[in-house]
Design a protein around this nucleic acid. Structure first.
Length: 569
RNA sequence: CGGGAUGUGGCGCAGCUUGGUCAGCGCGCUUGCCUUGGGAGCAAGAGGCCGGGAGUUCAAAUCUCCCCAUCCCGACCA
C-alpha cells in the first residue's frame, strides 16, 4: 500500500474526548473515528488489525474442532420471550420494531438463537460433541459507554458454544477452549493471565476470565506471587485464607458502651483503642426477598457478588438510611446483629469464629463489647462474603496476595444444563433415551482485544504493535523525495518486501522526513525501513520500533533482516 | 440511572462574567517559493446557520427557558 493513497488521517493533537491511551492513540494514529457514543468506524488500519486478530481466533477455534457459522444480528423477540430474557435483560437490549410492528432486538449475545438452531437439528448422540462459533458485531445499550473501544455499544465478539452429551464431555470441551484461549492471547503478543471468575448472571459452575494486565483495566486480578502456587482470580471471586482474631480469649459477658457520634469503624476503633479486626461491620441490603444483613470484620469489605451468590437473591442494594432506621431503630452507623430482625443474616466465616467482638448496639451512640456469635446472635448463613484483595493471605499456600488491574478480553463458562433444561434441548443416547445436552460458552472481545493490545504496547511516540497483529509489518520511508536514487530504491525495496510475503506500507508522500518518522512511530509499524543517504551504496536502515535498535543492511539481505526483527515480536 | 462538566471551521482552544467594533488564535488543509535524517520557513488562500429551538432586546456566540449531543465520576459486562 502507498501511504499517499491510503486513508490514515493522523492527528497531531489529542482529541479532547479520549481519556485512556488506547482511545487516544487509535484516534490519533488514524485507526478509528467515532460515529456515536460507543459506536466507532474502523478505518483501514484498524480493519487490518481486526482481520489479524480474527484470523488467529479462527485458526485456534478450528484447531480445537470449532465450526464457524454466521448468525443473525437482528433477532426476533419470540426467542427472547421464550427464554425469559426479553424482560430480564432490561434497557441494555437494543430493541426495534419492523414495519408491521413486530418486535426485534439487536443481539447482545447469541445463546437463544444458537440453542434454537441446534434444537432444530440435533437428534443423536452421534452428532456430539458439537462446537459452533461466530465472530460478529454485538450490541449492548450500555448505561455508560466509555474508554473508546473498551466499552462500546457496538463491538465485535467471538462466541463459541459447546454441546456435549455429559459433564465429562463438557470438561474436555472446556479444556480445549481454555487451551485455545491461552494460545490465542499468546499469539496476539499480550501479557495476560487466566483467572478464576464468577459466572455471574450467565450462570453455570466453573468460569475463567482471560485478563490482559494493564493499569487502565476495569477489573482487578488477585494473584498469588508464589511461583509454585499460581493462584489467580478476579477480585469478584477471589478467596483468601480466613484469619480468626481473638480466638484465644474466653467469651466475656456482653456489655454496652457509649460511643457518641462514632459511626465509622475508624472512629470506633480509635475511641475504644482496639484494632479494626476486633470489630464487626453489619451492613443491610435491600433485596426483593427482604432485608439481608451482611457481617464482615471491621477491616474487610463486603463482596456483593459473593453475597448475592450465597443468598440467591436476584438483586441487592445497600439499604438507605430510612430502611436502616426502620430495621434497627437506630441511625446509620450503629447497626449490629444482636436482636436484629432481618430476613437473612449472612455472616462471614471470619466473623463466625470471632470471640468478644465489638458490634453496633442498634441504638444511637452505642456499641456492644464482647459480642459472641452463636451466643449473642444466630447466623442464618456462614460463608465467605468478603472482598479478598492485595495483602490478604493465599488460601492455598499462605503467601501474601498481590493484585493488578486487568482488561477482560475473554471468558469461558461451563453452563451445564442450565439452558438446555429451560429450552428443552435434548438428544437420544444409545439406548434411545432422551438426555439433556450439556453446554459451555466461550467469548472473546475482538475489538476490545485490539484496544487492550494498545494499552499494553505503546510509548510516548505512539503505538507499538506486536508483529502478529500489526496492520502492516513494515513501513518504508524514503528520506528525501527529491532524491531519485532514494525514491527508486524505496520502490524496489517495497516491491521486494511484498514479493517476500511481508505486508509493507510505502510512505511515498512528499513530506519532510520528520513528519514521516513521527507518523511511522504513531501508527506503530513494528519495523521501519529508512531509505536515506546510503541508498547510493544500496544500503538501507532497519529500525525496530519497540527498542529503536537500528542496523544498516544491504538491500539484498533486507527481507531476511526484516524477518529476524519481526521474529522478536 | 444519579452527580459534574462541555458544545465556537477537520483537530485543540480563546471570546461569554461586563450584549454592539466579535467571528478570533494555534495546528491541519489549498497554491506558490524554499527546505529535506525527527511534526521547517515565507507569502497568498479556502473553510464556521458560534449544538438546536423558543424567548428577552434596537441589537445575542454572549442573557433566560426548553431540547439534543458528547465527555468525566459511582452500581453491570466481552
Amino acid at each position: 500500500m502507498r501511504l499517499s493513497q491510503y486513508l490514515v488521517p493522523t492527528l497531531r493533537e489529542v482529541p479532547a474526548e479520549a481519556e485512556i491511551i488506547s482511545h487516544q492513540l487509535l484516534l490519533r494514529a488514524g485507526f478509528i473515528r467515532k460515529a456515536a457514543s460507543g459506536v466507532y468506524t474502523y478505518l483501514p488500519l484498524a480493519q487490518r488489525v481486526l482481520a489479524r486478530i480474527k484470523a488467529i481466533v479462527q485458526e485456534e477455534m478450528d484447531r480445537a474442532g470449532g465450526q464457524e457459522i454466521l448468525l443473525p444480528i437482528i433477532q426476533p423477540a419470540e426467542l427472547w420471550l421464550e427464554s425469559g430474557r426479553w424482560n430480564v435483560y432490561g434497557p441494555e437490549l437494543f430493541r426495534l420494531k419492523d414495519r408491521h410492528g413486530r418486535d426485534f432486538c439487536l443481539g447482545p449475545t447469541h445463546e437463544e438463537i444458537i440453542t434454537d438452531l441446534v434444537k432444530g437439528d440435533l437428534r443423536s448422540y452421534k452428532q456430539l460433541p458439537l462446537l459452533l462459533y461466530q465472530i460478529q458485531n454485538k450490541y449492548r445499550d450500555e448505561r455508560r459507554p466509555r474508554f473508546g473501544l473498551m466499552r462500546g455499544r457496538e463491538f465485535i465478539m467471538k462466541d463459541l458454544y459447546s454441546f456435549d452429551r455429559d459433564e465429562a464431555g463438557l470438561d474436555v470441551s472446556y479444556r480445549k477452549m481454555y487451551d485455545a484461549y491461552t494460545r490465542i492471547f499468546e499469539r496476539c503478543g499480550l501479557e495476560f493471565r487466566p483467572v478464576e471468575a464468577d459466572s455471574g448472571p450467565i450462570g453455570g459452575s466453573v468460569s475463567h476470565e482471560f485478563m490482559v494486565l494493564a493499569d487502565s483495566g476495569e477489573g482487578t486480578v488477585v494473584y498469588c506471587p508464589d511461583a509454585g502456587c499460581r493462584y489467580a482470580a478476579n477480585i469478584e471471586k477471589a478467596v483468601g485464607k480466613p484469619i480468626f482474631s481473638g480466638t484465644d480469649e474466653e467469651p466475656s459477658p456482653r456489655e454496652e458502651v457509649i460511643t457518641p457520634g462514632m459511626k465509622t469503624v475508624e472512629q470506633v476503633t480509635a475511641f475504644l483503642g482496639v484494632g479494626a479486626d476486633r470489630l464487626v461491620k453489619t451492613l443491610l441490603y435491600e433485596t426483593p426477598d427482604g432485608v439481608v444483613a451482611a457481617l464482615v470484620r471491621g477491616d474487610r469489605e463486603v463482596n456483593e457478588i459473593k453475597l448475592q451468590n450465597v443468598t440467591g437473591v436476584e438483586r441487592l442494594e445497600l439499604a438507605d438510611a430510612e430502611i436502616i432506621r426502620r430495621v434497627t431503630q437506630a441511625p446509620v452507623g450503629f447497626t449490629g446483629p444482636v436482636g436484629l430482625d432481618v430476613e437473612t443474616m449472612v455472616v462471614d466465616e471470619e466473623v463466625a469464629n470471632m470471640v468478644n467482638c465489638i458490634t453496633g448496639a442498634n441504638r444511637a451512640d452505642a456499641h456492644y463489647r464482647n459480642v459472641n456469635p452463636g451466643r449473642d446472635f444466630r447466623p442464618d448463613i456462614v460463608a465467605d462474603i468478603r472482598v479478598v484483595d492485595e495483602g490478604q493471605v493465599c488460601a492455598r499456600c499462605g503467601a501474601s496476595l498481590k493484585s493488578r488491574r486487568g482488561i477482560e478480553v475473554g471468558q469461558v463458562f461451563k453452563l451445564g444444563t442450565k439452558y438446555s433444561k429451560s429450552l428443552n434441548l435434548t438428544y437420544l443416547d444409545e439406548q434411545g433415551g432422551e438426555q439433556l445436552v450439556v453446554m459451555g460458552c466461550y467469548g472473546i472481545g475482538v475489538s476490545r482485544t485490539m484496544a487492550a493490545a494498545v494499552e499494553q504496547n505503546y510509548d510516548t511516540d505512539g503505538i507499538i504493535w506486536p508483529a502478529s497483529i500489526a496492520p502492516f509489518k513494515v513501513v518504508v520511508v524514503p528520506v528525501n523525495t527529491k532524491d531519485q536514487v532514494q525514491t527508486e530504491l524505496a520502490e524496489k525495496v517495497y516491491r521486494d518486501l511484498w514479493a517476500a510475503g511481508i505486508d509493507t506500507m510505502l510512505d511515498d508522500r512528499t513530506e519532510r522526513p520528520g513528519v514521516k518518522f513521527k507518523d511511522a512511530d504513531l501508527v506503530g509499524y513494528p519495523v521501519r525501513v529508512t531509505v536515506g543517504k546510503k541508498a547510493a551504496d544500496g544500503e538501507v536502515e532497519v529500525l525496530r520500533r519497540r527498542t529503536r535498535e537500528m542496523h544498516v543492511v544491504p538491500v539484498a539481505n533486507l527481507a531476511e533482516a526484516v524477518r529476524e526483527v519481526l521474529a522478536e515480536g
